[in-house]
Amino acid sequence: MAVPLAAPPGAVRAARGSGHRRGDGKAAAGFLAPSGAGFLAFTLIPVIGSLVISFFAWPVLGRRKFAGFENFTDLITDPTFHRVMLNTLVFVLAYVPLNLAVSLGLALWINSKIRWRGLYRLLFFIPTVTPMVANALVWRLLYQPNGLISQTWETVFGSPAPNFLGDPSWAMAAVVLMSVWQGFGYNMLVFSAGLDAIPNQIQEAASIDGVGPFRRLWSVTLPMLSPSMFFAMIMTLITSFQVFAQPQIMTDGGPGIATETVVMHLYREGFIQYELGTASAIAWYLFLIIMLVTALQFVGQKRWVHYDG
């Protein structure tokens, strides 16, 4: 197994001669070579290649053929693709606000008069680093008919519990709930860091001026936290469009295709149907949507994000 390469000694020796002012072209080539070569081979060329492949009918076995925009237009008219887009959108629209609300709420709570803050933060953070597949399996057990959640439901409501993962009207909600549980800890830490950075004097000044706690939260704390919130929102939106492992493990996209997401569809088209052209076109649709949503966020931020203060 090849393990990495230090900078080529030749390049470094060459650099010693050349003066600082005159540029370090040769040294730079040496330092950049390992990263640059890998970046070119495994990131840049694949990104471009992906766009090229998306214009081909490209089966894994058999002859590939230029197809123009056919992959893209076929997808646009495919009811299955409509459904997986809709599923993903529903997931994003439910998951992102819930994630932000829970993470912000807990960050504020832990930042109030609470002991052992570090311990709480650490424990809430844990599911974000444990393998998603393992987290999803644990929840798959929790959601089983007659599992812990069903038993609790029956005790509390006295009526038979729905089959959470098997009922089309419950399955997506189940996936969202599990995802919020596993994912909010990260944003909670982002918000905690943001809260720690707010100088105490500002809170105190507002407090002396007779500003009540709710007003203080709304008019002082949240505006000062808005850059963190903007950052968290962007990152969470981007990653939530890429949701894959949770539905793959918990529902396998089912029942029917009620929880099949865009990335699951990409995986099926590309690596089960072996239609690599279609899979690439799906990836570019995903990329375009992510870019569009991110751009909209950046346009919208002027209205609510305060960078100075």
């Binding site: 990104v47 290649g49 990409l266 990836a283 990329f287 870019m291």
Partner: peptide, 12 residues
């Protein structure tokens, strides 16, 4: 900015 999913097909 490019999601990983874009590169999995060419990488494969």
């Amino acid at each position: 900015m490019v999601p990983h999913e874009v590169t999995v097909v060419p990488l494969f």
